[in-house]
Simulated assay, not measured.
Amino acid sequence: MTSTDVTTSMFERIGGSATIDALVDRFYDRMDTLPEAKIIHAMHADDLGLIRDVLKRYLTEWTGGPRLYSVEKGHPRLRQRHIGFAIGDAERDAWMLCMRGALEETVTDTAARQELDKAISGLADWMRNRQ
């Protein structure tokens, strides 16, 4: 690991807010159009504008960017916030299909993309609340 690896946040490595914005937009575009994502699309409101903004703020902070999520929402408490949704393997897999495609389209740094994929996969696994 070099000294820049220690001091450069993932947010900076991937290109900051422009990349986060593109990542989230591509994620929801994929969720909105892929037949495999119908299972998770059904969990969302028809208007995805608000949730796009929330995910952008969350991912900005989660990747080491400005604190845009917690100042408004507090601690993420992701499992608690999603407990009303049945999330099993199929839902996790559909979510990850959309996210992996979005990552491929928007994060050009291969190492950063792989690190994000690993971290997001772990998070998606942890969100499962049904068999």
Rank of each mutant, 00 (worst) to 15 (best):
23 L>W: 06
54 V>F: 01
61 E>F: 09
75 H>Y: 13
40 I>K: 03
23 L>P: 07
31 M>R: 01
60 T>R: 02
28 Y>R: 06
62 W>F: 15
105 E>H: 07
80 Q>A: 15
99 M>C: 07
53 D>C: 00
24 V>C: 02
77 R>I: 02
35 P>L: 04
45 A>T: 14
101 G>H: 05
93 D>Q: 10
39 I>G: 03
53 D>W: 00
67 R>T: 14
89 D>F: 09
32 D>Q: 13
57 R>G: 10
66 P>M: 03
54 V>Q: 11
74 G>K: 11
16 G>T: 03
66 P>K: 12
43 M>H: 13
31 M>E: 04
103 L>W: 03
83 I>L: 14
73 K>L: 09
76 P>F: 08
84 G>Q: 09
40 I>T: 12
25 D>T: 13
98 C>A: 15
40 I>P: 01
34 L>R: 10
59 L>N: 01
24 V>N: 01
95 W>I: 11
60 T>W: 02
49 G>R: 06
28 Y>P: 01
103 L>N: 05
75 H>G: 05
27 F>K: 03
21 D>L: 00
16 G>I: 00
30 R>S: 12
33 T>F: 01
58 Y>K: 08
33 T>S: 15
18 A>R: 12
66 P>C: 02
30 R>A: 15
57 R>S: 14
34 L>A: 14
55 L>Y: 09
44 H>P: 00
24 V>Y: 02
64 G>H: 09
23 L>C: 07
62 W>Y: 15
22 A>P: 00
87 I>P: 05
58 Y>I: 05
41 H>C: 01
70 S>M: 13
99 M>A: 12
63 T>V: 03
46 D>H: 12
81 R>C: 06
71 V>R: 13
14 I>G: 03
102 A>P: 05
73 K>C: 05
54 V>H: 13
38 K>F: 00
101 G>F: 04
99 M>R: 02
64 G>F: 06
46 D>Y: 07
77 R>T: 05
61 E>V: 07
55 L>G: 01
68 L>V: 15
36 E>M: 05
83 I>K: 13
17 S>N: 14
17 S>Y: 13
39 I>V: 15
76 P>A: 12
96 M>I: 03
48 L>V: 14
36 E>S: 15
69 Y>C: 08
58 Y>P: 02
102 A>M: 04
48 L>R: 14
46 D>F: 07
82 H>M: 08
75 H>M: 09
51 I>G: 01
40 I>F: 02
20 I>W: 00
32 D>E: 14
35 P>T: 12
28 Y>I: 05
84 G>M: 07
55 L>R: 07
53 D>F: 00
53 D>S: 14
93 D>C: 03
82 H>V: 08
51 I>D: 04
56 K>T: 11
53 D>V: 06
42 A>R: 13
35 P>G: 04
51 I>S: 07
77 R>Y: 03
52 R>P: 07
54 V>T: 09
16 G>W: 00
95 W>M: 08
75 H>P: 04
41 H>P: 00
46 D>Q: 12
